[in-house]
Simulated assay, not measured.
Amino acid sequence: MKKNIPSEVQVSGLEAHLGYWLRFVSNSVSAEFARKVAAEGVTVSEWVVMRVLFDHNEMQPKELATAIGMTKGPVSRLIDRLLAKKLIARRAHASDGRAQIVRLTPGGRALVPKLAALADANDAEFFAHFSEAEKHQLVKAMRKTVEVHGLSAVPVE
């Protein structure tokens, strides 16, 4: 039988780490948003693809992958899922027969503002207790961390 011997080494607790609290909040915010977009028939990853296409009109899959910080394989699977849901369309590139171009369908384009409103409402639900100045400071701190560490992948899920 092992005895419970006190350690002389000081070990920080989980709650002493900022990363713990960031993950704790992020998991809750993300899970609730995932539930909300699932009710609209899409995943968070699909929403990210649709939101990027909303701004770019049409893109090659490799450009889309770069824009969201994913590799070609996972983006291809997302494209296939969105094609099956008729939220995006694909066509051959005009000058490169091997390349494809993807774009939102009219139904996909109409869905993006609704999903964006869900994202806004989700943020409001979780962060309404902060003043605008506090929210600005949080975003500024997170953007600084992204910049300092050269982070580029868009949070997908």
Rank of each mutant, 00 (worst) to 15 (best):
T66A: 14
F54I: 03
G69Q: 02
K62W: 10
A92G: 10
I79R: 06
E46D: 09
K85D: 14
A65R: 00
M59A: 12
S45Y: 06
R91Q: 13
M59N: 05
W47F: 15
K85P: 04
A84K: 12
H93K: 04
P61F: 00
D80A: 11
V52A: 09
I88H: 01
A99Q: 11
G69R: 01
K72D: 14
V52Q: 06
A65M: 01
R77N: 14
L83K: 06
N57F: 08
E63H: 14
P61A: 06
A94M: 11
D55K: 07
E58V: 01
P61L: 02
L78F: 02
D80L: 05
V52E: 11
A94N: 09
T66G: 14
R81M: 10
M50Y: 01
S45H: 12
E58C: 08
V48Y: 02
A84E: 15
R77A: 12
S95W: 05
P61W: 00
A84L: 04
A84R: 09
T66H: 10
M50K: 01
T71G: 10
D80N: 13
Q60V: 08
V44H: 11
N57G: 14
K62Q: 14
D55T: 11
R90T: 08
G69N: 03
L87N: 04
H56C: 09
H93Q: 08
F54W: 10
I88G: 04
G73Q: 15
N57P: 07
S45N: 12
G97C: 03
D80R: 05
T43N: 10
D55W: 05
P74S: 04
G41H: 03
A99F: 00
A94G: 13
E46P: 10
V75D: 01
H93P: 02
L82D: 09
V48C: 06
L82R: 02
R98D: 14
S76G: 10
E46Q: 07
L78Q: 07
S76F: 00
T43M: 03
V48M: 13
Q60H: 11
V75I: 02
A89I: 05
E46W: 00
D80P: 00
A92I: 11
M70N: 07
K72C: 04
D96L: 06
M70R: 08
P61Q: 07
G73D: 11
M70G: 04
V42Q: 05
K85L: 04
R51I: 05
W47C: 10
S95I: 09
R90C: 10
M59Q: 08
L64Q: 03
A89P: 05
G41V: 05
R98A: 07
R81I: 03
A89E: 12
V48T: 13
W47H: 08
T71Q: 07
V44A: 15
K86T: 08
V52G: 03
R51F: 13
G73A: 12
V48H: 03
D80Q: 15
M70T: 14
R77L: 11
Q60M: 15
W47A: 13
R98M: 11
R98V: 04
A99K: 13
T71A: 08
A67C: 04
K62P: 05
V75L: 00
D80G: 06
A89K: 09
F54N: 13
A67N: 05
K72N: 15
A92K: 12
A99L: 07
S76R: 01
A99W: 00
K72T: 12
V48A: 12
V42C: 13
